[in-house]
Design a protein around this nucleic acid. Structure first.
Lengths: 240, 240
DNA sequence: CGCGTTCTTGACTGCTTTCAAAGATGGTGG
DNA sequence: CCACCATCTTTGAAAGCAGTCAAGAACGCG
């Protein structure tokens, strides 16, 4: 009993994040709690999803960080996004296509099977949450493409830090302007299409400019406004 | 009647592409033919979807090229992908989230409403096709991220040309090694995170090397093998 | 305390951008 | 049919951002 309560507590970040997408009705909340009791715990470097393999069933990340990665023959690696508590792994509209990327645990990770929404989609808040999660994943992918294609190293890091912070806030893991960032500079480099050396130098520049504090896995945003002003998306212009 | 036959013919590329994803049963084929009769024709630069606006219903591209774009405040533009006949616009698992990108016609484009799959998803080949279309869209996005983050200009263009060619083949618009490419070098640049000047120089290098022929909107792949060998994704290594 | 990983620094190289201007191309109207 | 214009492509020279290579410092863990 005590163990179960503890486990439920560990799932709270994931549930918090899903609830930030859409209010969940009591049945769906209960289904989530139930599913989270049958969790898997894995260590860093464990491959939760293998690129090219068929996706069996969607998983729900309960705690820890993971990332999407593609690796080229010569060893170059691209990390295309991170998975945080409440994110879904292999959340495709059933069918079972081959996974485009590998999903790899970055920290100790716990996950469970994502509970299936009720047959009647209309009344399932869970189906809605999954759909919205997929939609926000798409937003992040598009934003990442713009980041890689059109932003300077400085801008990339700034924009990316803000995205990570916003996502951590959604699952209650960011306290104000401060949040954990359990990544090496090499991982950041492989995410942002840079080298670890250049990430290091750019981070130093950001520190010098008084924009952020970064040390040993923690980040503190000092000048939020300056960071945001570095990258702003154009308000859509109706042309039709 | 003749007009309808002609219209049906124009939809063939889109239908061909959808059938390449999954065999379509007769009812779904009929639904597609029917939907394609009520088409819209728009000119280049027309905005089919506006970033930030809510998506109403999915559309099906019947003919022409369009692209996903994000524009920054200072005018920098990132094209995150192209839409070809048979591609869906706003193909999210219902709900109506805000569009992450604008979708803009590049050539004269015709599209129609994407017919809704039958309620009973299990027997609907259309639902399967849409799901697979969404999955391949995801693949393309991930591949594009890797392209932008980790490939050189030369490799980016090579890899991207091969992707475009493969997609055009799926809708019957590529004849062997040759296919249309109705894009300016500036559009290619905004797609691949380069400048138009550098795209121009890199294309010249590819011509010099005897890899491709590119002129006035047409491409001919001369040395397919060499292009493919430039970029190869790592076969997944099972680590679990 | 020792070792491996990660971070930091320096010097040098080079891919890509920038800026500018000269050709080529294609469509339009006279 | 050709002149004209806008758009697109091509070219050159110079500057800069980011990469590469290498080595030393700091950190964290057992």
């Amino acid at each position: 009993m005590n163990a179960n309560l503890n486990k439920a507590h560990l799932a709270s970040a994931a549930i918090l994040r899903l609830r930030s997408l859409v209010p969940l009705n009591p049945e769906d909340l209960a289904a989530l709690e139930r599913a989270s009791l049958e969790r898997c715990e894995v260590s860093p470097r464990c491959e939760l999803q293998v690129a090219g393999m068929r996706i069996k069933e969607p998983l729900l990340l309960l705690s820890g960080w993971a990332y999407h990665a593609q690796v080229l023959l010569d060893g170059r690696r691209q990390i295309s996004g991170f998975l945080l508590p409440g994110d879904l792994i292999g959340n495709c509209q059933h069918s079972n296509p081959a996974a485009a990327t590998s999903v790899i645990a970055l920290t100790p990770v716990s996950f469970c099977r994502a509970p299936m929404p009720a047959r009647d989609h209309a009344t399932s808040s869970l189906a809605e949450a999954y759909a919205l999660s997929a939609a926000t994943d798409m937003h992040h992918l598009y934003r990442h493409i713009t980041r890689l294609g059109r932003l300077s190293a400085f801008e990339r890091i700034a924009d990316w830090l803000l995205e990570i912070r916003q996502r951590l806030q959604a699952c209650g893991l960011a306290a104000g302007t401060e949040f954990p960032l359990p990544l090496t500079q090499e991982v950041i480099a492989d995410t942002l299409g840079l080298t670890n050396v250049h990430v290091n130098r750019t981070l130093q520049a950001m520190r010098r400019d008084g924009l952020v504090e970064i040390r040993s896995g923690r980040v503190k945003i000092l000048d939020e406004h300056a960071l945001e002003s570095l990258v702003q998306y154009h308000p859509p212009t109706v042309t039709l």
